[in-house]
C-alpha cells in the first residue's frame, strides 16, 4: 500500500512536471486554438458565438450563423457549443468576461441567459437570434418566417396533385407556429381545396420521429411535406428519398438553408430560406464599424431576411415562380398580410 502510494506520487509528479513544461510553451501553441477562426492576424475585434444544444453542425441555424461569422473579415471569431441548458450562462460569460466585443446567442433558448448577462454586464455587447431580449446592449434579431413560408405555401398549393399537403414541426412553439401559419395561408391563397396535415413531433433532434411523421403523411395521400424541424427534418428527407427511389413521386420543402444542396434535387422541391448568416454577418460588421446599437429587428421579405431558394427553378415551373414573385411583391407592399399564428 505504502509503496503503491509512492508510485502514485511519482506518477503525479511526472504529470505535473509535464504540465508545467507545457505552461512555458503556451505562447507558441496558443495560436492553434484559433486555427479554425477568421484569418486576419491584425484582427482587433473579437466575436464569440454560443450555440444552443443543437451544436454547430446542426445543418440549420447554428451552422448558418457560424458560416456568417467565418465570412467576416477583420474580426477574430470563436464559438462554444452548449451540451445542456446549464451551459448557456457559463459559455456566454466565457466570452463576455473574456473581453469579447460581441457575443452571440443562437436560438430562442438562450434568451433568458442573454437577458441576465446583459443586465449584469451593461458594457458588454450581445446579440441573439430568434428571440427578443429587452436590454439596451442587446441586439435581437428575429425573422418573419411566416412570410417566407407563405411563398413556399404558394408553390405547394399550386403543385400538389393530391390536394393533400403535410407540415412537420419540431415543437409547438411560436417560432415554428409562424412557419405553419404562413405556409397554410400561402396554400389557401392559391388552392382553397388543398388540405394541410400538421404534425408537431416535439423534438428537433429525432430523425426517427420525422421519418414516422412523413411516412404517415405520404401514406395518407400527401405528395408534398414542408419540414421545420431541425435535425428531425432529415428523417422527412430520408423517407421521401426512399419513396422516390421506389418510384413514388413525393416532395419535401426544405427549411432555413437551401436543402437541395444537402439532400438532392429529386426530393427537394424548394426551400424556405432564413438568412441567419447574413444577419449575423451584418450585425457583427456593425460592431467592427462602431455602429452597433441595441434594439430589436424583424427581418422579413422586405429586408431579404427570408425567401425562397434560388435553385427552386429546377423543379418549380416558371408560371409558379411568377405567382410566387407576385405574392412576394404584394407582401412587401403590404397588400397581403401574413398571419403569425395558424388559423384554426
Amino acid at each position: 500500500m505504502k509503496k503503491s502510494f509512492k508510485l502514485t506520487i511519482v506518477m503525479l509528479l511526472a504529470l505535473t512536471v509535464v504540465l508545467a513544461g507545457c505552461g512555458s510553451k503556451k505562447d507558441n501553441t496558443g495560436s492553434s486554438a484559433s486555427a479554425d477562426t477568421a484569418s486576419s492576424d491584425a484582427a482587433k475585434v473579437k466575436v464569440g458565438m454560443v450555440t444552443d444544444v443543437g451544436g454547430v453542425n446542426d445543418k440549420s441555424f447554428n451552422q448558418s450563423a457560424w458560416e456568417g461569422l467565418q465570412a467576416l473579415s477583420g474580426a477574430k471569431a470563436e464559438y462554444l457549443q452548449s451540451t445542456k441548458p446549464d451551459d448557456y450562462e457559463t459559455n456566454l460569460n466565457k466570452f463576455v468576461k473574456g473581453g469579447y466585443d460581441l457575443t452571440w446567442g443562437i436560438g430562442m433558448d438562450l434568451g433568458d441567459a442573454i437577458g441576465k448577462i446583459a443586465g449584469q454586464n451593461p458594457n458588454a455587447k450581445l446579440a441573439i437570434i430568434d428571440a427578443t431580449v429587452d436590454q439596451p446592449n442587446v441586439k435581437s434579431v428575429t425573422f418573419s418566417e411566416n412570410e417566407g413560408s407563405f411563398l413556399v405555401g404558394v408553390v405547394a398549393g399550386m403543385m400538389t396533385k393530391s390536394n393533400k399537403i403535410g407540415f412537420v414541426g419540431g415543437a409547438q412553439i411560436p417560432v415554428i407556429e409562424r412557419f405553419e401559419a404562413g405556409f397554410k395561408a400561402g396554400i389557401a391563397a392559391v388552392n382553397p381545396n388543398a388540405e394541410l396535415l400538421v404534425n408537431y413531433t416535439g423534438a428537433f433532434d429525432k430523425p426517427d420521429l420525422g421519418k414516422t411523421a412523413a411516412s404517415t403523411f405520404y401514406n395518407d395521400g400527401a405528395d408534398i411535406v414542408f419540414q421545420a424541424a431541425g435535425a428531425t427534418g432529415t428523417g422527412v428527407f430520408n423517407e421521401a428519398t426512399a419513396r422516390v427511389r421506389s418510384g413514388q413521386k413525393v416532395w419535401v420543402i426544405g427549411v432555413d438553408k437551401d436543402q437541395s444542396l444537402e439532400f438532392g434535387d429529386e426530393v427537394t422541391l424548394t426551400s424556405m430560406i432564413k438568412r441567419v448568416d447574413e444577419a449575423v454577418k451584418r450585425v457583427s460588421q456593425e460592431v467592427i464599424d462602431g455602429s452597433f446599437k441595441g434594439g430589436s429587428e424583424v427581418l422579413g421579405l422586405k429586408e431579404n431576411g427570408v425567401g425562397i431558394a434560388e435553385t427552386s427553378s429546377k423543379n418549380v415551373p416558371a408560371d409558379v415562380l411568377a405567382k410566387v414573385d407576385e405574392y412576394k411583391q404584394k407582401i412587401i407592399s403590404g397588400e397581403v398580410t401574413v398571419p403569425t399564428t395558424p388559423t384554426k
Binding site: V18, L19, G21, C22, G23, K25, K26, T29, G30, S32, A33, D86, E89, T90, N93, K97
Partner: peptide
C-alpha cells in the same frame, strides 16, 4: 490537438477565477 494545452486549459477553466470556480461547484 495539443493535449497538454488542453489539460492546462481545463485547469485554468476551473480554477482560473472565482466565477468559474463557483460555476464548477454549481
Amino acid at each position: 490537438y495539443n493535449p497538454l494545452l488542453a489539460y492546462q486549459s481545463l485547469f485554468t477553466q476551473v480554477f482560473g477565477n472565482t466565477y468559474d470556480f463557483g460555476e464548477t461547484l454549481r
